[in-house]
Nucleic acid binder design. Structure first.
Lengths: 137, 137
DNA sequence: ATACACCCTGTACCTTAGTACAGGGTCAAG
DNA sequence: CTTGACCCTGTACTAAGGTACAGGGTGTAT
């Protein structure tokens, strides 16, 4: 199996066939070669590419940002300095996301710690009370 | 001011009027009593309720999850442990994301370093594999 | 040669979390 | 008693990220 049909790729990458065609339209994956009869022929690299897209999405990147990430490389139209500049901007993005998530985690941890008596009814749940009264840092 | 109009509530809770009506349609806030002329009359509790929704959203809960949290509160068969379990699941979620982002940051940092040494990657996308194994090709 | 699974394009539709009117009624100040 | 700020319902729209056909062609096993 040296190349994959769109259906095989979809199963490998755990996405819908339509999603792959959608990514192609959005320019996130290159247009693959076609067979005589017009079927798309994917290489195994495409699996990794789609999995990257899915993972980056879970991390809060939009498809636009992901295509920026994927195009971080030198080519005739992109200089090394340009790649570096954009990579640095992405690092700042990523750092911001990490910070936001760390704050989220701290707040959630504080909430969980408030639950001393698990059998308390939810009507007296300190987690819910704290979310409501705005005393969470 | 013993009750609030929708506009007053919106200002207090720092949301749009339309958002409040949207939350009502979604069942996130109860239908308030009306004046003779049909105006919604909110109690001050509604401010807390909307702040709860907003706060939980910031912590990564979707509106669907938030309405589950809210219905846990009025269900006499659930305990605080149920609430805690949901918060803990969110924490695990957030932790995973932080880890993946840290890998991505490392990959981007490596990429920047490669640019500095004039070893810019020129062909395949250099960060593609980072979310899988944290290395650069 | 006939199912049946698969592929193609194109267009329409869905979800989430709201926003934005249109077309009308209400309330308080001047 | 009019003006302006507010409220009502209902519908339509937004952006992002898909999903779901319809109507047709292809590939292969029996």
């Amino acid at each position: 199996m040296e190349s994959l049909t769109i259906g095989q790729l979809a199963r490998q990458a755990l996405v819908n066939i339509e999603t792959i065609r959608y990514y192609e339209r959005r320019g996130l994956i290159p247009e693959p070669p076609r067979t005589e009869s017009g079927y798309r022929q994917y290489s195994w690299d495409a699996v990794a590419r789609i999995r990257f897209i899915k993972r980056a999405q879970e991390l809060g990147f939009s498809l636009r940002e992901i295509s920026e990430l994927l195009s971080l490389r030198v080519d005739p139209n992109t200089t090394c300095a340009d790649v570096k500049k954009r990579a640095e901007a992405k690092i700042a993005d990523v750092e911001q996301k990490i910070e936001a998530l760390q704050k989220m985690k701290e707040a959630l941890t504080t909430l969980v710690a408030m639950c001393q008596r698990e059998q308390a009814p939810t009507s007296a749940c300190p987690i819910l009370e704290t979310l409501e009264d705005g005393t969470l840092p």
